[in-house]
Design a protein around this nucleic acid. Sequence first.
DNA 1: CCGCATCCTCATGGATACTG
DNA 2: CAGTATCCATGAGGATGCGG
Lengths: 208, 208
Amino acid sequence: MSKRSYGQYCGLARSLDVLGGRWSLLVVRELLDGPARYNRLLEGLPGIATNLLAERLRELEQAGVVQRSLDADSNSVVYSLTPWGSELRGVVTGLVKWSTPLMISGPQSDTFQTHWLSVALSSLLDNKHTDEPRAVGLEVDGTLITVRTDKSGISIALDDDAQPETVLRAEPMVVLGLASGMLTAEQAIAAGEFRGNKKDLADALSPG
Amino acid sequence: MSKRSYGQYCGLARSLDVLGGRWSLLVVRELLDGPARYNRLLEGLPGIATNLLAERLRELEQAGVVQRSLDADSNSVVYSLTPWGSELRGVVTGLVKWSTPLMISGPQSDTFQTHWLSVALSSLLDNKHTDEPRAVGLEVDGTLITVRTDKSGISIALDDDAQPETVLRAEPMVVLGLASGMLTAEQAIAAGEFRGNKKDLADALSPG
DNA sequence: CCGCATCCTCATGGATACTG
DNA sequence: CAGTATCCATGAGGATGCGG
């Protein structure tokens, strides 16, 4: 029991032996957005100490959650999730959904990064679908998020070059409130500046 | 940021602000089996320090995950999950499923308690159903677990007074291997002692 | 007994400096 | 850029005490 394990033959305990360390699941969250280099992870995890990130990456690699590879072009280390690690998406999604009450209230001083919203939106809207395909833009914190819905489901894209007709400029909390169903479309619209078609926006973001 | 928060406006980070502390999710696991008193929780969480359990219970209560009530009969404190706390079942289930590779191999020295198996079996078999209702018994570590399947789904019961026709006596790993599909029915049967109908057992525990 | 609170020790985490 | 080394602060673990 050197590396402080719970020492229990229980699925949850063994999962937490791997993922329960501080920052571990947040590292997984970053990598769910795709492979990333060390410094990119540092930026996405404000507050983490450099030694801790290195340690967590080593632990997760040894456990088989993360794999490191060498990018041929830049000749630098790239981290990504293994197939088994990618299966954590459902758990992360579940926690994001569960957190909705914590997002509506709570401290305003927390830092915010736009790509975190893409995880949250994927989670909250994951059973959303519409007969007519739509592409709606959200301008949050200077970044455009494109939400596409069709009958097969939804997809979230950051840094997309598409120019959707409808664009909402709003605060993260308003977007989350609308997506989680805790704000009505009218309340959300009243809280933001808009260009384009407001109804499209409400349709795209109201949970199915 | 007094009580070490991640300080991120992100659903996963805020969930972990509440649940990420050591032992926190294991406390939730214990309470998913039903309300419990302090000493019962201590027994179910071997290795936890008494002050830590008290602290975690206070934190979880303040966050709205756990509620404490006073049992009228025994005049003692009883802990249970709030409705919001109960919504963590899906997350716990997801982690238990994800942990399967960790359960097949790994240290044999870990402690084991039968009621942990009931969480795991509920998770692994949750989409199981059969046209003809069955009740199959598993004798593990001296305790009888009854697995009932019908067309509406499955239910797991501990300390049941029912006497199912089929009873398996097997090691936890064998039960989990069969339930997760990592062991075939033949391999599982070869590894255990049996009374009754082996086929019923394999049918009941093979994932649908 | 039950439900904690206190005290003490040591492992872990956090901040910063530094290096190939 | 991708980490390692170092040092200090904090939290976990274990024993014990204590009122109800």
